[in-house]
């Protein structure tokens, strides 16, 4: 496997309505790293992820994925190596059955039907959703949809997994299953989330965004212990790192 280093240099992005979403942001992510992107609503997390798969092209600055700079010519290649799991699974699942949806990527990569079928089956097996394969996606529960959405990306065998709010809307059991599943992946993982407890489980490195800028980038636990920084990023210490108010009530 080639080493997929993600390198973002001084990117800026302005939405057509002139809101500046990213403001001179630079980031380097190494092969096999699991990085969390955290920050307040509107800090630029989703916009940043959109740049990694070329959904958005920066107004200035460069994005490099592996050996390729991201531009119109390399887009197809980059989208093969970067798999994006969208925030809303309903946007991602558009085929009439789960199986067709998971096989959509491999077929578009030009694989013969037999191989695409095998890939789709393997991916469904990984997320433990083979039994859903003939169901229409819009009739699944939230957790099932998320699993299938992940499978639809895994079937393309990406090197880098990009996820936008993977645990949003999942019940505690599904959320735990998702965490266990993601822990088993060897991919480079980039996860934008508000679920800081999930970050402790999955990512050794955390990047804090605020107003389109990186205000901190470092080891997860170190960042979550910095109260001033968390407050600046409009975050709160993960629940697991807060004293339990029931077992040990604060002394007044």
């Amino acid at each position: 496997m080639s080493h997929h280093i993600i390198e973002i240099k001084d990117i800026e992005y302005m939405y057509p309505d002139k809101t500046k979403a990213l403001d001179g942001l630079s980031l380097r992510i190494l092969h096999g790293e699991a990085v969390a992107i955290v920050g307040a609503n509107g800090a630029g997390k989703s916009t940043l992820l959109s740049h990694l798969i070329g959904v958005l092209i920066p107004s200035s600055g460069t994005v490099r994925i592996g050996d390729y700079p991201l531009n119109k010519e390399t887009l197809t290649h980059i989208r093969r190596s970067v798999g994006m799991v969208f925030q809303n699974s309903d946007d991602q699942l558009f085929m009439p059955t789960v199986f067709d949806d998971v096989a959509f990527g491999p077929l578009n990569m030009g694989l013969p039907p037999e191989e695409a079928t095998q890939r789709a089956l393997d991916a469904l097996k990984t997320v433990d959703a083979v039994h859903l394969k003939d169901r229409p996606p819009y009739k699944l529960s939230g957790g099932q949809k998320r699993s299938v959405a992940i499978a639809s990306v895994l079937s393309m065998l990406p090197d880098i997994l990009v996820m936008d709010e993977p645990s949003a809307g999942l019940d505690p059991y599904c959320r735990r299953q998702l965490i266990t599943l993601l822990q088993s992946f060897k991919h480079t993982k980039i996860i934008a989330t508000h679920d800081l407890d999930l970050v402790i489980d999955l990512c050794e490195r955390t990047v804090v965004l605020s107003n389109g800028k990186i205000i901190a980038d470092g080891p997860t636990l170190q960042i979550f212990n910095d109260d001033v920084l968390l407050q600046k990023g409009r975050l709160e210490k993960p629940l697991r790192m807060q004293g339990c108010p029931i077992c040990k009530p604060a002394i007044r």
Partner: peptide, 11 residues
């Protein structure tokens, strides 16, 4: 967004 999701999967 749906179109983007399709593009991301090589459509």
């Amino acid at each position: 967004r749906i179109y983007q999701a399709m593009l991301c999967r090589g459509f």
